[in-house]
Design a protein around this nucleic acid. Structure first.
Lengths: 220, 220
DNA sequence: ATCCGCCTCCGCCGCGCGGGGGAGGGGCCT
DNA sequence: AGGCCCCTCCCCCGCGCGGCGGAGGCGGAT
């Protein structure tokens, strides 16, 4: 209810204009104070370490160290880390998920209006409402274990072999795959043999397991 | 920047006291208007349908229809659905993930202070900042495909059959499974046949697929 | 005492599967 | 011109697998 002290904010964005704009918006609020700025990820980390802000507005795309790594380092090295809000241009940005995993507790679109920005900063500063970090991180962790780095063999599969593996993972027999792909059963056998060789498996069942473990099924 | 009109809010909570408290807090703000209340999930759906609010504060635990189903129904049946904010008591509530999957775009803890509540409602109403629904839903979807409700057949498997299925999903042959389980190959065949019957699959490969799809592999 | 579910095995049979080796054609790069 | 990769298809062979029916023991419910 009563604001005990001002919310200390650090801005991290490689574009000076963006920083200026954000500073102008936030400084207009009596309860918000922009205590520092950073133009690179590395700078953001050191600035956060020195100034101990309550909130960091972090751009994803920055030179040297990107916003994701910077977020990780800030959260890892500080005892009482600030709330990190990641700023992106597009909401379907793939960085979103990496940022979540890194521990960011919120997002802002650059096109968000000033009002929303201010409110978001206030909200994040007082935490424990609207999507808490713990929930976010649990989700991100689930997302992470769903697709780590795909094994090398995925890239080595030819077009037809990938098709065959997909059908294998659907539980089809060679004959069924042949009908679906409109080729002879012998051809399918050849492809299956190639898939087994490249995946390092000995039978179709192990190949299917490899496909699932590799997240091969999640990639559409 | 300028608020064009008031934010219309509907409260859904089975406890009258909670509704009263929320209404008191929100009504104190000139830009917020509590236009309706509901004491059950079913009521929440019909009220939302009639009043077309901007935001619905939805309790998870409610008689008849719980908050999750109510959220689903509201989002499914309305052309321009309201933003649904789910209200929980504990942040590690397992309902959180179900709510995300259902399409809720935010969370509030009941212990959140009045200020945070008001700000959260404003923020959610003007959308597109702080964790957008699309990102949340993508994450929730990832989480969902990791562990939906396990199919009925999982419970029907006997102890030995579960063991066998686990070994099948490790890519072992019947002979290997027999050695591991210290029984005869014929016994393994019997168990495999039972697994195929209960999973409704025709061969070991499909059984493994079923195991993966059912999240059978995640459960330890 | 009877039934039923679970686990343990046995045989027989057919077939899909995987291994091995070969062959021809089309596209691409050198 | 060659070489290489990919796709296509053929043969034979062995075997693991799944379907079928049957059997015995053991424990818990009724």
């Amino acid at each position: 209810m009563t604001r005990r002290t001002t919310i200390r904010v650090v801005l991290a964005d490689d574009e000076r204009m963006v920083r200026t704009a954000l500073r102008a918006i936030l400084s207009a609020e009596p309860d918000l104070e922009v205590v520092g700025e950073a133009a690179t990820g590395a700078e953001a980390v050191s600035v956060a370490r020195e100034l101990r802000p309550d909130v960091v507005l972090m751009d994803v795309r920055m030179p040297e160290v990107d916003g994701i790594r910077a977020t990780e380092q800030i959260l890892a090295t500080l005892a009482a880390p600030p709330r990190v809000v990641v700023v992106t241009t597009f909401e379907n940005d793939s960085y979103v998920y990496d940022a979540l995993r890194a521990g960011a507790c919120g997002f802002l679109l650059k096109r968000a209006d000033a009002d929303a920005l201010v409110q978001a900063v206030r909200l994040v500063a007082r935490t424990d409402s609207l999507l808490f970090p713990s929930a976010v991180r649990a989700l991100a962790a689930a997302h992470a274990r769903a697709e780590p780095a795909p094994p090398a063999w995925v890239a080595r599969l030819t077009g037809r072999e990938s098709e065959v593996l997909r059908h294998l993972a659907a539980g089809l027999t060679n004959a069924e795959i042949a009908r679906l792909m409109e080729v002879g059963p012998a051809t399918v056998k050849t492809h299956v043999a190639a898939v087994l060789a490249k995946t390092g498996t000995r039978d179709r069942t192990q190949a299917v397991i490899a496909a699932y473990e590799a997240g091969f099924m999640n990639a559409r």
